[in-house]
Write a protein that binds this DNA or RNA. Structure first.
Lengths: 272, 272
DNA sequence: TTGCTCCTCACGTCACGTGAGGTGGC
DNA sequence: TTGCTCCTCACGTCACGTGAGGTGGC
């Protein structure tokens, strides 16, 4: 009893196009193909295989995995392993979607309350970065600009002495959250090859970090608004601040008609 | 200050390929393109837009939606509407993945306990079906075969009288779950055009149903194993039986060397 | 001159769906 | 003869990633 594809589609409730596709990739070949017309013929004994395909697909396995399972008749352990893999994937996917749902809901609340966000907070991973830097404790906060200025000068000199140019915008790494005095600060320039450290300038690799970041453009004074925006976001989205943040001086005011661009990155981690 | 794509990629932490793609689709055009070399140039003022793109992408919006949001400057209500849509999608996705995870875990438990499943249970929606049928109450269960036989004969005669052929395998619809006596049974043939009903044969449309199904092949006696397999699956996966099931006689024993093929479909619904 | 950066195709991804254009079978 | 079913391309999907092969800039 050979069945034409349309009838086989009818009894199996699977679209003709899908059956043709499964034939094409060899997952469920037609039992017979007319050499002249190209008509595919099926029979009812293929239903169990088709149903096995559908059942496994319903667990989210790929057709490639299903083909493996059905044709290499894998051991039970291998089936278990494949299902465990899928389970882990699904758990990850669910967690991710729920986190995303959380972010959508926070944003939705903001939007429906009419708060305009001035800053977009972006989560990202910052790769490890080779830098020439100087790290110091600054006794009082009003001394920070002077200290940083001196540090950048010293680093530049050291780099120039080794004939090295910066490989990106310079940055400041704050090794503790903002405080009133004795800030632990590191002034740094990214570089793209190793040179020796000097007494005052260290060459080392900043670690990879996961950050919540915002870009501030315009007046340098309004800079702390970007900080505030990140802190608010971090709280609303149930993330946790870790003890470091960075400021990256992407463009100075002299480069861009008085408008400077700075990125603030707070190292964070997801709660729970 | 024009920045080459590589440097812009560096400070934004977005791959060059992605920047080129966003330029190509017009989502984030380079501010300037060299007519001769084709080099793309960016500037730091594009960072906020890029960050907005990344932040919205992080909520799972498509680039097309993001382009709409950024360029048509939509009203706040439209933003809210878009986020609500996304929220609903995400909730649906999460629910679906969790259900799938549940099915994977049931299957995993079976597999690791070494139970081989003889039947694959498949969930599907069965489209409404136009049938010629006869519905009856059968006093005692041993009379079922006789009653059904007579009913199919009557339906066939009626169809022949209207010069109509069956449009698929015949089926039995059980309008209550299995019981000891007074079964409410309907014998039916699918047809593909309307003909008048007669006194004993009704022409009507079976409703669309969502079913858990299994295909049984082989001896007709072992048929109830398929029932048992579905019932077990339904229980393990936290579905609920509704008051109907169907048997579809896909191939009789005479067509296939003594092996018959029958599909059992229990109408179900997801719990909770 | 040598790398390095940038460029443009073209193809692959996953599981089909959607036509276009044409032929066999009752 | 007329529909109906079946066929084979070819293209689209979504957001890029991966080469291949070639050129500009220091």
């Amino acid at each position: 009893m050979l069945l034409k594809i349309g009838y086989f589609a009818l009894i199996s409730q699977v679209p003709v196009k899908t059956l043709r596709y499964y034939d094409e990739i060899g997952l469920l070949p037609a039992v017979q193909v007319d050499a002249f017309t190209g008509y595919r013929y099926y029979n009812t004994e293929q239903l169990p295989r088709l149903n096995r395909i559908l059942a496994l697909k319903d667990l989210g396995l790929s057709l490639e995995q299903i083909a493996l399972l059905l044709d290499k008749n894998l051991s039970n352990e291998q089936l278990v392993a494949m299902l465990q893999l899928r389970q882990a994937q699904l758990q990850g996917d669910v967690a991710e979607l729920q986190a995303q749902l959380g972010r959508v809901e926070v944003r939705l609340k903001q939007a429906s309350e009419g708060h305009m966000t001035n800053y977009e907070i972006v989560l990202k991973t910052v790769k490890p970065m080779l830098v020439a830097s100087q790290r110091m404790i600054v006794p009082t906060n009003d001394q920070v600009p002077t200290y940083l200025g001196n540090a950048y000068d010293a680093i530049c000199k050291h780099m120039a002495a080794h004939n090295l140019k910066t490989a990106g915008p310079c940055l400041t790494v704050w090794h503790s959250l903002p405080q009133m005095e004795n800030e632990d600060v590191e002034a740094a320039f990214p570089i793209d090859r190793e040179i020796p450290s000097s007494e005052s300038v260290q060459i080392h690799r900043l670690p990879e970090v996961y950050v919540a970041s915002a870009v501030h453009q315009g007046n340098f004074d309004e800079f702390t608004q970007a900080h505030a925006a990140i802190l608010k976001w971090v709280e609303a989205n149930d993330y946790q601040l870790l003890e470091q943040y960075r400021e990256i001086y992407i463009a100075g005011p002299n480069e861009n008609a008085g408008v400077s661009t700075t990125e603030v990155q707070f190292v964070v981690k997801r709660n729970g």
